[in-house]
Structures are given as C-alpha cells and as structure tokens.
Design a protein around this nucleic acid. Structure first.
Lengths: 245, 245
DNA sequence: ATCATCCATTTTGCATTCATTTTTTGTCAT
DNA sequence: ATGACAAAAAATGAATGCAAAATGGATGAT
C-alpha cells in the first residue's frame, strides 16, 4: 500500500522562479540558471529565435534538460514559445515595459510598507549609510557607482520587508527589465537625477518614521518617475551626461 | 547565413504562468493547464509526492511533456522538486500563507492605484452594481454568493488597472492560495463580515473619487484583515455561521 | 521483537530515437 | 531575372531507452 504521508527530504530546486540563489542539484536546474543569465545578459538579440541545438552544444548537454529550462523561462516571461517553431527571446513593447515598471513599483511600494513593520534601527542606519554613499557618487557624477548603490538601497528595503515570496517575485520582474537595460543603457537626465536624490531623502525620512502608507506612496511615485525617464530614454535615445548639482 | 531578424509568428504559449486563458497549442501546454488544475483542486494531498507514471497514464501521454509541465509548476511555486526523488506538492507553512496574502494585498493595492488612473465611469458603475449585489448576499447570509461576487469585484479592479502583467501575476498568486482554500474552506467570522462590508463601501467611495493613494491604502488594509481572518481560521478551525447585521 | 544490511524493484534524470512540421534549397516555367 | 512549386534538409515535439539513484522488503544479527 502506498503512503501519502509527506516525506521530509529537502527541496533543492528553487521553490519559485529564482535568479538570486545559485543552487542547482539537477542538470536542468543548472541549465536553467545558466540559460537565464545567458538570455538576460543579452547574448541573444531581441526577438531572435533561441537556437536549441547550438545551446545544447554550448552547454554540453542533450536537448531534454534544455527544453525543460526553456519551458520555465517561458513561464517567467523571458522567452516565448511558438508552436512547432521553438522559442524566441521575448521582445518587450513599450507598453510591456510600462507594465513591468508599474508592477515593480507596486512591489517596492509593498516592500516599503512591510518594511515599516519589521525593519530594525540597525537596518535603517545601514540604509542611511548607503544613502550617504550614494550622495557621494551623485556629487562626483559617478553614475555607475550611483546606480549600484541605488540598487543596493532598494534591495535593502525589499529585504527588510521579511517576505521571501515578495523577494522572489521582485527578483523575477527585475530580471525581465534587466535584459532591456543591457541593450539600452538607461542614462538619466541631469534634472531627473537631482529629483531622484530628493525622492530618496523622502524615502529615508518616511522609513525612519516607520510611516508605512507614506513610504508606500513615495516609493510608488519614485518608481513611476523612473519609469517615465526610462521610457523617454527609449524613444529619444541619447541624453546628456549628468552634472553636479 | 543565418538571419537574426525576428520572425513574426504569433506566440501561442502564455507569455507567463497563466491560469486564466485556456489556450494550448502544444501537448506540454495542454498538460500544464490540466495538471495545474489537478493540483490546485487538491487531487494530490499536501506534501504528497506527485506520481509521475500514474499521471502519464491518467493523461495518456509520455513522461516528457509531463515532466516539462512539472518544471513550470515548480517555478510557479505550486510544487517542489526533490533531487532524484521527483516532485511533491508544496506544503505551505503558516508563514508562507501570510507572505502570499501580503503579496496579494500589495498587488491589489497596486491594482487599485492604477485603476484610479484608467477606470471609466461605466466600469465604476458596474462595480457599484456588484457591490449592491454583494450587499444583497450579505443581507441574505448567502456566503457562497457573497464570496463569488466579492471575487468578481476584486477581479474587476484588477482588470481596470489595464495591466496584463499585473493581472497574470495576480492570477498566479491567487492560484497558490486557492489550493489551500480547497482543503480548508475559509469561513469568516460574523464580525469580520460586517467589517468587510464597511471596507468595501470605503473602497467603492475611493474608487468613485479616483483617490489613488487612499484606495491603495484601503485595499491593502482590507486584504490584510482578510489575511488575519484566514490565518486565525487555520489555527482554530471552525467558526460560527454569519448572521444578519 | 528491533534494527541493520543486502538485494530486487521501482523511479528518476537524461540521452537518444522517431514522427511531423517547418525551413531551405533546387528546379523549372514565365 | 523572377516567381511558383517540389524535394531535401533541418528543426521541433513527443516517445522511448538506459544508467544511476532511491524505495521496499526480505534476511539475518542482536
């Protein structure tokens, strides 16, 4: 007789679409991670077909695990599956991007709200540190450093929300956008940069006061503005380098 | 020479994990839909292993497409993959449920915000209609009807957000929760029911005024309260049937 | 009786094979 | 040359095969 009592093995495969952790016990899991990076990093042009056989050679595997990974990437929205015509890299329309940014904004807005309930003083201080670091990058017009620190701040807020489900979803959507960022590097307008700094001040302030609703609002607006800048950048490609305040 | 110019075929496979639309050109897509339903409807007990071979017989297919579907369901978070031990239905801890509810709350909060930007008067009126209908169910203590209408209201709000990406993500998370709901039927406390009605009044009011931030707040709080009720229900199983106001 | 060990059976993971469909190439008529 | 058509080649999607691992049960020691 077969028992339906759950066994207590440890799940190795990520519980949900997962770009963060670098674990992989099975071949298909390993391939999933590698292929996702491969696509996100833009090794296949937008809208181009995913060369199944070539990738098999590249990774040194058979088609079965690769195809399994493709199905997952399709579910994540990174690629599309065409009936009898394999997979192709999903080309995001401007509308798609707007939608993605809005969802990201919603998730971060949520993260801020939850963070207010759970964040420790120590964590707030750490974010303050990052904020000043970022301000330094801003003053030195170091865009790369600025972006990196900016991202760390947003990640810190998501981490402070104490919600793994949210974190995973956030990582998933971030991955989809990152792919676009690789091809078209988002340069911000000077004006927008100063604005963003001010918004970050407000974020920090609301976080200090644990003002959940307020933080939620500010974060959404902040991401919304980012969205506008990004979309504008896509339509009229180049923009001036940022200058000091 | 191979061209990298995108061909213009029509993608049939859902762009992301998709429980809503009933399309499927490929076998694995068909199986994905059927298997997802099969799991969500609770045909396999919590934490039990997913019998690969049996399901193949049930669906009349070979293992390959089934295994592909399993990988996707794992990515969606409905099942877990154990290395060399197949798949098992993911058992959600109380913490997992709390997280899921919070993410749902965040998504609906976002939906409300976006809806305020895009919703038409006609749509608002339609939601008002649903609201009165729901009130009728409330007065008649028709819990089933109440739930159904309630769900339609929330879906209407999500639809009014005009964001397919959001809608898809919402459906995905809703599916994960629905599985739990099948096993433990969420009965609400009488007091909570009256409260929920009041909250819905406020939701409708904010929606009429297109008060984005306010609606966002109310929706989050509304879902938060739902969460509390649901979790309480899980720990102390049964509760009284709702009475008239 | 309880527990550990070994072996048969089953299951899993991946590679390989096979039937279709699509894509490319080649031919011919205009 | 250009286009239509047909055949060859390649690809996709699914089924099958095979080695490795896990499971279950029998055996034997304590």
């Amino acid at each position: 007789m077969k028992s339906t009592i759950p066994d207590n093995g440890v799940p190795i495969t990520p519980p949900t679409a997962n770009g963060g952790d670098r674990e992989a016990a099975s071949l298909h899991g390993e391939i999933l991670l590698r292929l996702r990076d491969y696509v996100v990093e833009g090794n296949i042009p937008d809208g181009a077909r995913v060369p199944e056989r070539q990738l098999c050679e590249l990774f040194g595997i058979s088609r079965t695990p690769l195809r399994e990974a493709l199905k997952v990437l399709a579910a994540e929205g990174l690629i599309e599956l065409l009936p009898n015509r394999g997979a192709r890299v999903r080309q995001l329309s401007q509308r798609d991007l707007e939608e993605l940014f809005d969802v990201m904004a919603g998730l971060e807005s949520l993260a801020g709200r939850l963070a207010c309930e759970a964040i420790t003083d120590k964590e707030v201080i750490a974010i303050e540190q990052l904020h000043y670091e970022m301000y330094g990058h801003y003053l030195h017009r170091d865009m790369h450093g600025y972006f990196q620190t900016n991202q760390r701040i947003h990640e810190s807020i998501v981490a402070a929300a104490r919600n793994e489900t949210l974190k995973t979803a956030y990582a998933n959507f971030a991955g989809r956008i990152r792919r676009v960022r690789y091809s078209a590097n988002f340069a911000r307008k000077r004006q927008r940069w100063a604005e963003a700094m001010r918004e970050h001040e407000a974020i920090l302030d609301a976080l200090r006061r644990r003002a959940a609703s307020e933080l939620s609002d500010i974060l959404f607006q902040h991401l919304r503005n980012k969205r506008t800048a990004a979309i504008e950048h896509l339509t009229e490609p180049q923009e001036d380098a940022p200058a000091a305040p």
